[in-house]
Write a protein that binds this DNA or RNA. Sequence first.
RNA 1: GGUCCCGUAGCCAAGUGGUUAGGCAACGGAUUGCAAAUCCGUCUACGGCGGUUCGAUUCCGCCCGGGACCUCCA
Length: 485
Amino acid sequence: MNSPPPNVLRLYNSMSRSVEELRPRTPGAVTMYHCGPTVYSSPHIGNFRSFLFADVLRRFVEDRGYRVTQVMNVTDVGHLTLDDIEGGEDKMEAASRKTGLTAWDIAKKYEAEFHDCQKTLHVRLPHHMPRATDFIAQMGSIIDDLLRKGVAYQVNGNVYFEVAKFPAYGKLSGKVLDELEAGARVAVNDEKKDPRDFALWKVDAKHQMQWDAPFRGGARGFPGWHIECSAMSMHYLGPEIDVHTGGEDNMFPHHECEIAQTEAHTGKRFVGLWMHARHLLVDGKKMSKSLGNFFTVADVLGKGYSGLELRYALIRVQYRQSLNFTLSGLDEARSAIGRVQQCRQRLVRLRDGLERAGTADMAAAAAKADAAFTAAMCDDLNVSEALAAVFEFVGVCNRETPSVAGARTALATFARFEDVLGCFGPEPAADATNEAPAELLALLEQRKAAKRAKDWALADTLRDRIAAAGWRIVDAPTGARLEKA
RNA sequence: GGUCCCGUAGCCAAGUGGUUAGGCAACGGAUUGCAAAUCCGUCUACGGCGGUUCGAUUCCGCCCGGGACCUCCA
């Protein structure tokens, strides 16, 4: 058995069910579309497992030298709930009813919250983040075309895609039409020719969000769930894109429907590589409000953890493995990040002449760490193994006394790891002492005096007071300095 | 019922037909006035039962346990 080359990016394609080399349609450039948030509630950590996976993918593809164009939609039209089929309301409408805000206000509010979370979690923003409601016209022209081609039909103003006209339906998810339990979880809809036909356009007078039909011969209503992604993807990236990602639950029916309507419309292969993130578990169970293990991003921040720590905890396991999220996992993340940053800070001190440099040029160790990191990430984004390479390098750096140039080399290596994973933070300052509040600096001086006088009790008291303020004293051979704890 | 994934040391989590992750925690030592940080060392595992093999945690079968999807869901 020959192993694949270590520096070729290989990703798991849900469509072929195998790991494939990334081969963009245009050499040197990669187009990516990500199914984004539905903005009717606060984003939770499960959502961000998926979005952070997309972010790490984008960062590593860029690291490999590709020019990436990334699109992530914002679904601000409500999705139908189960009982919607029988005349209930969708999620956006339900949120509206509960809060007294309009559906539009709800969407705006949670979209803003989503963007805040992206920032907090150090996400490199996608190039385009279009809203579904801004693409009604584009959805309309696709619906128009599908009606004209006879693969969609209209009943009482509702437009359905006729799945039977698209034989490849089910290929992505592996669902064989006959095996699907018709009506198992959805009330049978007599309008549909086939239970699996899905809505492209819906008519419901009770719905707050309404548009005049953007296609010929239609009635006032709102778009179905799937059509927005086809419209926005096509608008920004063309009829054929390289990579499309989403959570595992999107595979069926959402992506299956996207493929059907898009390919029926364009006659071309929609997506080269389908990628799906596994859902995370919380304390070993599926996250759900009824189990009390449901965390929004804000919940985690409210417990005193940083966005960086949450990011680390959410990306440290490869996207295709189920990740078990726990609060102690966040503590581990904090310690692990600290270990890396501590190491980087010493390197900065060596580089900047604040500590006596040694002779190690670090070149071989850095090259080895770089190669191991690259190989791990190329292997379908094996972040766990990539992190192992990072920490192995930390150990080497701590053991050696690098030269000034060696420190520079090592820092460049860490900068690259940070560029790809984004979970360690920026390069630390050599000495944060001067950034500390004046009163802490005064305490530090007092402690120095106490130590000179060998008044250990006073010295320890002062150290405790500084610690209580969130800083810690580092007694280095060159003198004491302050660091943020 | 159908389709699929997983079970690795105290915890999290890679990986492999025979040498060997990594992180966190714990313990011992070096260092330190005492700490913190750092270094050295200790703890060395692959759910169970069979099979294939010179050799299996790694391949095959069965069983047990956990989880996911089957039109709300990242």
